[in-house]
């Protein structure tokens, strides 16, 4: 699974969770392509959406992240890197 694959998983999960920032398809595309990063604080992500993001990551990559751990991650790019590192070890 590549970094781009992980970004697709994250973007799809946020769309499915109705996170408003990800209704903008251009912003999604930029994130998936690695041209744009988005701070977690700028996402309007509620507790259920956080759970849905963690579920999608685990289902698609096998990497377990608890919803509470998202608070330790500064941005979606950093989250993708964290998943990538976990897959490499």
């Amino acid at each position: 699974m590549t970094g781009a694959d992980i970004r697709v998983v994250i973007a799809d999960a946020l769309v499915y969770a109705s996170v408003p920032r990800f209704r903008d398809s251009a912003e999604q595309a930029d994130f998936v392509a690695g041209r744009r990063d988005i701070r977690m604080a700028d996402l309007e992500i509620d507790s259920l959406a956080a759970m849905e993001l963690c579920i999608a990551i685990e289902t698609n990559s096998g990497v377990s992240i608890a919803p509470g751990e998202l608070a330790e991650v500064a941005s979606l790019g950093a989250l993708a890197e964290r998943v990538e590192r976990a897959l490499a070890t």
Binding site: L48, M51, C54, I55, E58, T59, S64, A66
Partner: peptide, 11 residues
């Protein structure tokens, strides 16, 4: 298998 599975059921 995992707590995320439990969260999925709850949602």
């Amino acid at each position: 298998r995992s707590l995320n599975d439990i969260h999925r059921i709850n949602i």
